[in-house]
Design a protein around this nucleic acid. Structure first.
Lengths: 339, 339
DNA sequence: CTGAAAGCGCTAACAA
DNA sequence: TTGTTAGCGCTTTCAG
């Protein structure tokens, strides 16, 4: 078997070399932009490459060099995330930054329970950790450079970049208090997400700082779903000595609460002040624009890629970095001074 | 240089073979689940693999086999698409189906003007064609199996799977006519997208079928953006002899129209009936639930992967297939019989 | 400035 | 049932 030329196959570096009348090595040099090639040869090679529409096999390249610059974005398949617009923003941020840095982006919508199959990725970005911590640990154990988004991982030696959920929640409560509210309810998100837990934490902390007694009955636990938000809203609205304001852990749920309030004949913000979290564009469409907390999602996503890229390069001995990005309270129309 | 063992390097199939006391080939057989291996050896190999945490290099595998089952999802970086929830649904559908079919998913948020760089993808799914037709043609010219989503490509020999936008639009107009409307306006989308063009086409066709004269003044061209929708809505509402109903090319814009109407003191659906397109969940939150057209996005996405997978397999000589998926009119509260 | 030759880690005939 | 031996297409010393 010495048939070097399989007509149905792709053109290889050898074909280029032959037609250009140079060695394979020289072609390789041209491909890799190594300056030592004589201008004339370089031109010749380049023209043959164009003529043959030659594309070097990245698999061969990666095998030969041992490098791969493939980034895997791992998104746990958790309904709550996918129904928020959160995932899209992250994907967008990561995707565009990968395009900029010339990294290949492998998308993994993974079942959190399964072990990770890293198909040749040289680095991994975890979009949140929801029930898939073991995947992160696995990656770390295998020494695969990783970065975690939207989850501040304290107890693992890994870079992470998250949003200050607790701080955002505190800002919400402080704002509500500044409007005179003292009876402030909270619809939590799903505590399998760190974000929900932190928001709850911030809520409690702010109450304490404002010398407001924390009351269990004002807390409604949900899984971020519209259904549970609706249920919670109904319960909230019909309770005696009701809250005058409610901080809802996501805009999507806040909108549902608004809808329920409206159906019940309540006026927002007159009868109830509402604050969401996310700055989901949907919050703008209702009759009353939603006051909410903006998170720098795109920035978080982009930074994660940059960070991973730095770690990936062994030259620049990048160290583990843990970042907490600030949020911003966006005041719109859904809150009012308490009567 | 005959150092077979570089301690800092990854374990290779050779290490496994040595420790298991078999040949490399046998290890390869175990990896590829070729049944002819004796149970005892297989067990031994498996245990060594586990012990060494050996993971075969996919690059070497791909190079050796020439196969790669990597699917690239190409999404033109077009703001209009990314601000709709459309992209997320597609990514979700494609992503989960890839996971099911054990395909690797490479995500490309591409600048439509640039030539495509297919980093070793064995097949491509184009999420719509918006200004990047040349990329599709390039892929086809290179003989890379491709499938197009959300764009019925008539004049190219390529599989595509799209939604019946014209049919959906017709259904909308017919419904409006059945409610007694004769003065039906239309906010178009951006005509760089086929969807917008088809919806406009369906709108015109339905008018004709219902013997309603098409009036240019009832047509408002937009680029799918909220800003232009708002402008169009304002123009629409202040015109003399105004339309009694409006068919808006996207839910996001329909919501904006609703908002403007509300601000202007109009009542929906009393003063104006509105129908959107997309079945965007945001349409549910307003005070008046939006009547709209549901598109089988997830299904479309999933089918595209299946189709590509079929084409990818040369055994099953799959032929080019062009599919048009039906839409469904979802009647909610934003329309009313004309007085 | 250029080329020969030795791999990178794995698969796939072909023999045994 | 197993092992030997060529490659897959490219990079990279090392000589020249």
């Amino acid at each position: 078997m010495r048939t070097k030329k399989n007509p149905s196959k792709n053109v290889s570096i050898e074909d280029v070399a032959r037609l250009a009348g140079v060695s394979i090595t020289t072609v390789s040099r041209v491909i890799n932009k190594i300056p030592s090639v004589k201008e004339k040869n370089k031109a010749k090679v380049l023209s043959v490459i164009k003529e043959l529409k030659f594309q070097p096999s990245i698999f061969a390249q990666r095998l030969a060099t041992g490098k791969s610059n493939v980034v895997a974005l791992v998104i746990p398949r958790y309904e709550g995330v996918f129904y928020s617009f959160y995932a899209l923003e992250l994907i967008r941020g990561v995707g565009t930054m990968c395009e900029v840095l010339k990294l290949d982006l492998l998308l993994h919508l993974t079942d959190a329970r399964l072990p990770l199959s890293l198909k040749g990725a040289s680095g991994i970005i975890f979009a949140d950790i929801i029930g898939n911590r073991h995947q992160l640990e696995e990656a770390l154990a295998q020494g695969i450079p990783s970065v975690v988004i939207n989850n501040y991982v304290d107890d693992l030696d890994v870079s992470c970049i998250a949003v200050d959920n607790a701080g955002g929640a505190e800002a919400v409560v402080n704002y509500l208090v500044s409007l005179g509210h003292r009876k402030i309810a909270h619809l939590t998100g799903d505590f399998v997400t760190q974000a929900a837990a932190k928001r709850f934490e911030g809520y409690k902390r702010a109450l304490k700082k404002n010398n407001i007694e924390f009351q269990e009955r004002y807390v409604f636990k949900t899984d971020y779903s519209r259904g549970q938000a609706r249920q919670a809203a109904e319960d909230l609205l019909k309770m005696q000595d009701p809250a005058t304001a409610v901080f809802v852990a996501s805009d999507a749920m806040a909108l549902e609460v608004m809808a329920v309030a409206r159906e019940t004949g309540k006026n927002i913000p007159k009868d109830l002040s509402i604050v969401g979290f996310d700055d989901n564009p949907s919050g703008l469409y209702g009759p009353v624009a939603l006051t909410t907390v903006r998170q720098p999602l795109i920035k978080m996503a982009e930074e994660s890629v940059k960070e991973l890229n730095a770690i990936l390069d062994p030259k620049k001995k990048a160290k583990v970095k843990k970042v907490l990005l600030p949020t911003e309270l966006v005041i719109r129309e859904s809150c009012q001074k308490v009567a």
